[in-house]
Structures are given as structure tokens and as C-alpha cells.
Nucleic acid binder design. Structure first.
Lengths: 136, 136
DNA sequence: CAATAAATGCACTTCCATTGCATCTTATTT
DNA sequence: AAATAAGATGCAATGGAAGTGCATTTATTG
């Protein structure tokens, strides 16, 4: 296993102290986090920096955005085999209506979705809402 | 087929000129619309009124919200058999990356989604993104 | 018609996403 | 190593949409 520095550099991302901290924070979380979550964790950091760091990570396919229907964008690290960059990955996310947390279920694949004639499916966003294992 | 007035009254919604207009506007659209879409169509109407009308319609199961990932809430009329009120309906929506429109595909049902042990699925939001029939 | 309840319009607030610009830091070149 | 360029960061500000409070108008009921 390479170091985080090596990993980020392999993704063409320049190393800074802030970026390492943000990456480690994301890695420590099992759930998708909001910008504010990160901001609260590092109150010395400016919101804009966090925002742009996440944007950079996203462009370099290190994290992906999740729209879980709460109206607030969440972020999570891409995992091995995430294939965000290919655009064919089938993201499955679970949003708990109780604790309000959103979890990546990367091991659970989305079944093939049929669309009507003339429609071309490029991406599928699926969010299952309910009660998570910790709340049930 | 009953009149719109009768239909709304059957849903326990009081009839006003504005509500009839909004309903007809929604009915004339084959795609889900945003608050701003409606506002542009009736520039004399106040945004708050539209907002609260949609909220009322939603509570009475006349329309449902759609979160297509654009970050802007969209609305569409519920159709026969929509079953929004039961909460078990499996909404399938298609968002076109080209024309940016979102279409209800009520005749296309969402397959059963498996979730890990301990998780309870209450609702599923599925948005397929790609190119719609008009843009392909 | 009076009394009541609901709908509407205006003003305002809040929250999050996003951008411009100045400054600081890191990398590159000579 | 100094000069330069490129990128990262921080502050301030903007914009868009959701949501709320209150006064006014409109509709319903007795």
C-alpha cells in the first residue's frame, strides 16, 4: 500500500498539508460528509479552500459527490473499483432518515435499469432511504 | 373524466383561480418543472404563493417532488397509480444531460433493491441520467 | 350579514454554492 | 540561490433557492 502522498501524486494532485488533512478526514469517515462537516472538523480552515479542494479531488476522481435528497451536497472517497472516471459505475447510496447519515454501499451494485426507446442511459443515481443498521 | 375543479375538490383542495392555472400548467407539461419555471409562466404571481400551492398539492398527493441531482427541486403531477401517498411507489425519473429536462417514467418500475442486513428500505429515489429521446 | 378560516402578497431571513481578487506558498527555470 | 511562474489559500462578496412572519385579501360557514 502506497502512502497517501504517493497516491495523491499518482492522481496528479499536488501535496499540501491541508489536502492531506482533508483526505485523512474523509478516509476516517465511513459516511459521506458535507462541506460543513469538514469545516467543523478543521475550524481553522477556510470554507473556500475546502470547497476547492473537494472540487479538485472530484476532478481527479479521488472523491465523488452524493446528492442524497437532503439538498446538501455530500462527499465521499472513491473506493477501489469505483470507476467514477468511466462514468459507468453504478453508485448506490443509503440515506438514513433517522441519523441523517449517508453511506456508500459500493459492494451493492445497481441492477440494470430499462429506459424507453430513444433514451440513452449514461449514469444512474440511486439513493435508498430508510433506517440504517445503527438506528434499527 | 371529471373536471379539474372536481378533481381538486376530491383531493380536499380549495379551488382558486391561481391553483387552477398552476394545475393546468403542470398538466400541460410533459416534464417536471421548477418553481422558477412556473414563476416565469405567470410573472404576475408571487413566488411564495406558487411555493405554498405546490406544497399543498404535494401534501394532498396531487404532485410529487423530484430531486434529479441538479440541486433544484422539480415538481410533476402524480399520475394514476402513482401511489405517492402510500410511500411504496417506486419513482423512476430520467434527467437529460443535454436539454436538462426531467421526465417521469411512471410506467417503468424500479426493480427491488437489496440492502445489507440491518438496513431497512423505506423509499427509493432513482434518477437515470443520459440523453432523452428528443435529444438523441 | 357577521364571523371565521384559508389564501395571497410582500418583506425578510437563512443556508449553501460559487466566484473575484489579493496574498502566500510551492515548484521551476536560469 | 534568486527570479519567475504556477498553483493554493483566505477574505469578501454575490447569487440562487428554500423557507418564514405578518398583514391583507378572498372565500366559507353559520
Amino acid at each position: 500500500m502506497a502512502t497517501i502522498e504517493q497516491f495523491l501524486e499518482s492522481k496528479d494532485i499536488r501535496i499540501t498539508a491541508m489536502r492531506l488533512l482533508i483526505y485523512k478526514f474523509l478516509a476516517s469517515k465511513e459516511v459521506a460528509v458535507t462541506l460543513s462537516d469538514i469545516q467543523n472538523a478543521f475550524d481553522k480552515a477556510d470554507r473556500t479552500t475546502l470547497y476547492r479542494t473537494l472540487k479538485t479531488f472530484e476532478e481527479k476522481d479521488v472523491v465523488h459527490q452524493i446528492d442524497d435528497g437532503t439538498g446538501i451536497t455530500k462527499y465521499a472517497l472513491c473506493e477501489e473499483g469505483c470507476n467514477c472516471e468511466i462514468g459507468t459505475d453504478l453508485h448506490l447510496h443509503f440515506h438514513c432518515n433517522n441519523c441523517n447519515e449517508t453511506i456508500c454501499l459500493t459492494q451493492h451494485k445497481i441492477p440494470q435499469i430499462k429506459v424507453p426507446k430513444g433514451f440513452v442511459s449514461e449514469d444512474v443515481n440511486l439513493v435508498v432511504k430508510g433506517i440504517c443498521d445503527k438506528c434499527s
